[in-house]
Design a binder for these strands. Sequence first.
DNA 1: GTAATCCCTCTAGTCGCTAGAGGTGCAAGG
DNA 2: CCTTGCACCTCTAGCGACTAGAGGGATTAC
Lengths: 146, 146
Amino acid sequence: MRTIGKLSEAAGVKVPTIRYYEQIGLLPEAERSAGNQRLYGQLTMDRLTFIRHARELGFPLEAIRDLLSLSDRPDQSCAAADAIAQVQLAAVEARILRLMALKAELQRMIVQCAGGVIAECRVIEVLGDHAQCHSDHPHRHAEIAM
Amino acid sequence: MRTIGKLSEAAGVKVPTIRYYEQIGLLPEAERSAGNQRLYGQLTMDRLTFIRHARELGFPLEAIRDLLSLSDRPDQSCAAADAIAQVQLAAVEARILRLMALKAELQRMIVQCAGGVIAECRVIEVLGDHAQCHSDHPHRHAEIAM
DNA sequence: GTAATCCCTCTAGTCGCTAGAGGTGCAAGG
DNA sequence: CCTTGCACCTCTAGCGACTAGAGGGATTAC
């Protein structure tokens, strides 16, 4: 059994994050030592590694919650897990496309801003006037967060 | 002069967001009608369009605050605006690279999960065991937000 | 006149943590 | 045995950039 600090180091997840995961029910309530300190065994370590890995792949915590509950029923079809991964893949692809358009637009702005004066600055100008913009990014509020 | 609802529609920014921008000082305090309703002229409309456009390009509000203060001094060099855009471009490029790695990993997981049972599901397996992972995404917490 | 639709302020919630205050447990050195 | 110092505890508040809702007032259309 490890303390939370050891678990944190071993799993690569910060101590407050582990407590947070327990608080929101992603991790079970930890056993406690005589002095009320959390103690963890290998099962929690594995679960935490799973969570960290899924977070690194961009899954939101709710999706991870679903994946964890799936992995508790190993006899069932993995169609549900597959579906969750498909949704995540589609989200990642959409984000890539969007970012590539932004990148092109930023590059265009920067290239045309060759050290002049604010009044002629393409960066400022493009931002102030949508007609200057070559990409057709949406008029509604953009999907910005991952 | 338009009311907040008309401005919202014209600029493509939601009403509560406009009030929020005023609250954090990105927009000046609006004039008020006799009945205490906000009224906006063309200047605020332009400023809001600028903000929306910069947000769509992924600039954080703090960067936008800087850009706005730059655009208030049109005689100065645009080096600072250029620098802000460069930082944003670098951030976008980094995010694209990261997302491409995630995409490859997700695709690999999904292809190998061909409708079996949870116990053999690659999605679950890859997440539970870093050794199964082909990409070398970082062990520390990933940069996930945009 | 009245009903519908706008607008107002204020508070709290979202996501996934992170930081800090103020206190307790524990292991090692002297 | 005592102290030092770190790791741990709980609790609350904060981040960014909004969003949602309550409970009310203003304006407009019929």
